[in-house]
């Protein structure tokens, strides 16, 4: 392996908890990686002050060069802060695409702020898909003991239900298998969750299992992928936690998010599948209500940084 991995970190929205939480993480960072921070320097300085730390870890800084707005206030939506957040992600993604950094970890941005700044993206994943020019992405949530990939995320439940087709499910099983193999898992066992209660009970409680999920699992098996399902959503996560599966493919946002957050609320990490570089993120938002108070929990951010390093090195383990 070449020397230390280089992890790019975007600070997110300066009015949120991203900079203060990351300042705290930076104060206690692993020596196994080099850090490049993307954002506004004033935001990190303010974050360090709020967190009460003066990080002396070595890191490079890529400043997007946007001044602090005169009317800046922590916890308040601002178009300038939205622009800083997006431009930080754009700069980091450009470096990831050109191979100057090995992975990126993003701190939260605020959807309203980026919309106020004139961007139409819903979040990081859409921005990154646009920059990398890909359309088949997926969100994985991971905590110690449980990994979940989502068939879809930001859709209403009715639209998410309509998205459950054989081709969509098969594409995500395949993406899941390819990506997790690259990240280090071996002989991956994929469980596919059902959409309907009790897995549809043979068609009595819905037909998507018979019409879409079963054919997709069958086709995946024919490609040599160890996929199982559809399995009822109220037991498949227990089985994965007990070690029967390496990853669960959830059919909609809350199906996967509920399981992850019930299992381990504070250490869940997001990773994006389907883009040509590693990107992880903490699984919470800007938390404007507590920004600036120095009380935000930094466990998730530490976990996200560790995960970025693990995935960049292809060192994900079936047992973790």
């Amino acid at each position: 392996m070449k020397g230390n991995s280089v992890i790019g970190v975007t600070l997110g929205d300066p009015a949120g908890i991203g900079p203060e939480v990351f300042a705290r993480v930076l104060d206690d960072v692993s020596t196994k990686c080099e850090i490049v921070v993307y954002g506004a320097r004033w935001a990190l300085e303010l974050g360090a002050k709020i967190a009460g730390v003066s990080p002396n870890a070595r890191y490079k800084f890529v400043d997007v060069g946007i001044d602090k707005p005169v009317d800046f206030e922590l916890g308040v939506v601002s178009p300038v802060c939205g622009r800083i957040a997006v431009e930080s992600v754009e700069a980091a993604a450009a470096d990831a695409l050109s191979g100057q950094i090995d992975a990126m970890m993003t701190c939260p941005l605020n959807k309203e702020a980026i919309h106020a700044a004139g961007y139409s993206d819903i979040g990081h994943q859409e921005i990154l898909a646009r920059l990398a020019d890909v359309d088949a992405t997926a969100t994985m949530l991971m905590t110690p003991g449980l990994r979940v990939v989502h068939l879809s995320t930001h859709k209403s439940l009715i639209e998410a239900g309509h998205y459950v087709t054989r081709d969509n499910v098969l594409e995500k099983i395949d993406l899941c298998h390819r990506t997790l193999t690259r990240w280090g898992l071996q002989r991956i066992k994929i469980a596919v969750a059902a959409l309907n209660p009790h897995g549809g009970e043979g068609g009595l409680l819905g037909r998507e299992e018979i019409d879409a999920i079963e054919p997709a699992v069958k086709a995946a098996k024919e490609r040599g992928i160890d996929a199982r399902g559809p399995l009822p959503a109220d037991s498949v996560f227990n089985r994965a936690i007990e070690g029967e599966f390496d990853v669960v493919l959830a059919m909609y946002h809350d199906q996967g998010h509920i399981a992850i957050k019930v299992h381990n609320f504070h250490e869940s990490v997001t990773a994006t599948l389907g883009i040509p570089f590693v990107r992880t993120s903490v699984d919470h938002g800007t938390a404007f209500d507590i920004a600036g108070r120095g009380v935000a929990d930094s466990r998730g951010t530490t976990a996200a940084l560790d995960a970025a390093l693990t995935l960049a090195q292809g060192a994900l383990s079936n047992d973790a």
Partner: peptide, 8 residues
């Protein structure tokens, strides 16, 4: 929505 978390 209710059964999955309760079983976990």
């Amino acid at each position: 929505q209710g059964h999955a978390p309760m079983k976990l």
